[in-house]
């Protein structure tokens, strides 16, 4: 999974994280990302490199993962987001990719 740029994040130039977006039926995204903006239960939350370990409940809304200069967007509901050692896992019962280019 790790290609040397993620993991502990101490190596390599990019300040990235291993991001995975998982639903019961599929892994919608797995890879390196620079930032994650997620719909938490009480508002938006942004995650960057070296975020403190955290588990947060998600509400319903748009999840944006910035990866290689591209932003991938998903509609998520019912789930949680977890950060540990620059690994961000988003688990949601419903994950639907939003078409690229449509938004902004």
């Amino acid at each position: 999974m790790s290609d040397g740029t993620g993991g502990a994040g101490s190596r390599g130039g990019g300040k990235t994280m291993e991001v995975s977006v998982i639903s019961p039926t599929t892994a919608a995204f797995e890879g390196t990302g620079e930032s994650v903006v997620a719909p938490a239960h009480d508002g938006k939350i942004g995650i960057l490199h070296d975020h403190a370990p955290m588990t947060v409940l998600l509400g319903e809304g748009e999840l944006a993962v910035r990866s290689d200069g591209e932003t991938r967007r998903f509609h998520v509901s019912r789930g949680f987001l977890q950060v540990v050692d620059n690994e961000v896992s988003v688990l949601a019962e419903r994950v639907e990719a939003i078409d690229q280019g449509e938004t902004e």
Partner: peptide, 29 residues
Amino acid sequence: GGGRFYILDPSDEEILSELLPLYVVNTMY
């Protein structure tokens, strides 16, 4: 594995009561 958690938002109780139904549905799925 891992032990207890760090930052929890909202409380562990509230997270748990959201996630348990998901877990139960997932077992059926």
